Amino acid sequence: MTQEQHFDVAAYALGVLDQRDAERFEDHLIDCPACAIELESLLPVVDILSDVDADALVATEQSRRDGLMLKSMIGEVKRERRRANSRRLYSLAAAVVVFAMLSIGALFAGGKWLGTEPASPGTNQQAATKSTKSIDPLPLADGGIGIGGTPLPGKVLTATDARTGVTAAVGYEPKDFGTQVSFMVSNVKGKDGPLLCELVAVPVKGQEQVLSTWVVGEKGWGTAAAREVPGLVGVTSLAPEDIAHVIVRAVDPKTGEKQNLVRVP
């Protein structure tokens, strides 16, 4: 970066730099907030100059020679302004984007985002910023333990079906909108292809609700061929105390026939 490049702002704004110097200045502009700010302040001046009546202005000049030079300069500004205006604006926009990205990076580096202060030592940051109005991602460390030691939010219940061998862990967490139901299902085997499943909430009173649907691949979930057990989330308008139990079902995509895999509790 050279001192001369700082002096090129006005010439660049007027569009009188040649292509080589203009490109050199644009490279400098990306890394120089001072020049970007100065360029932005000069753009209205350039717009005013382009609208000046050169002939009327020259008539007021005492010196014919000076008047001809001024007329030539204003004419050049008008011609170059149309060619360079878009280029200047794109360069200025690029500089603004770079500075914005750097500012965002500084916010992250300082541990602040939208006014959230870094957690003090020993504080669970997730628990400190939790809201009962939103769905929490999995896993969370302030609930019970699900399958394989994975934590689930809220009150966690587990069950294994003796007939199918399927195990499910379900966490109930009260929310403003009802209940978030976080769950994990293990030892689910695909039969002749992907298996369509659904999680159903059975209320103490009223009709059952389908909270979530998903597909288990041919290798299954929590099996010898596929040991991973994903954590899923469903929601219901029911309060936790209004849910009698939940059921994991397999659904035949062709016939619609349903089979209960496990009930919790």
Rank of each mutant, 00 (worst) to 15 (best):
G105L: 09
G111S: 09
K112W: 04
I104S: 13
S103H: 09
S120M: 12
P121Q: 01
M101F: 05
V96N: 09
K112M: 08
S91V: 01
E80S: 02
K112F: 06
A84D: 07
F108L: 14
N124M: 04
Y90A: 10
L107T: 04
G105I: 06
G110V: 05
A127R: 15
V97P: 00
E117S: 09
T129G: 00
I104Q: 10
K130S: 08
I135Q: 06
G105C: 05
S120P: 03
A109H: 07
S91N: 05
G115T: 03
S103Y: 04
S86R: 14
S91Y: 01
F108P: 00
A127S: 06
M101E: 05
S103E: 07
Q125D: 15
N124T: 00
P121E: 03
A84W: 05
S134W: 10
A95V: 05
E117Y: 03
S120F: 10
N124V: 00
A100Y: 02
A119L: 03
D136M: 09
A95Q: 01
N124A: 06
N124C: 07
A94C: 03
A109Q: 09
P121K: 01
R87E: 00
D136I: 11
T129H: 07
T123W: 00
P118Q: 05
A100L: 11
F108G: 10
G110C: 06
P137W: 11
V97C: 08
Y90V: 13
Q126V: 02
K133W: 01
G115V: 08
I104K: 01
A127L: 15
I104W: 05
V96Q: 13
Q125F: 12
V97D: 11
F99M: 03
T132W: 13
L89Y: 11
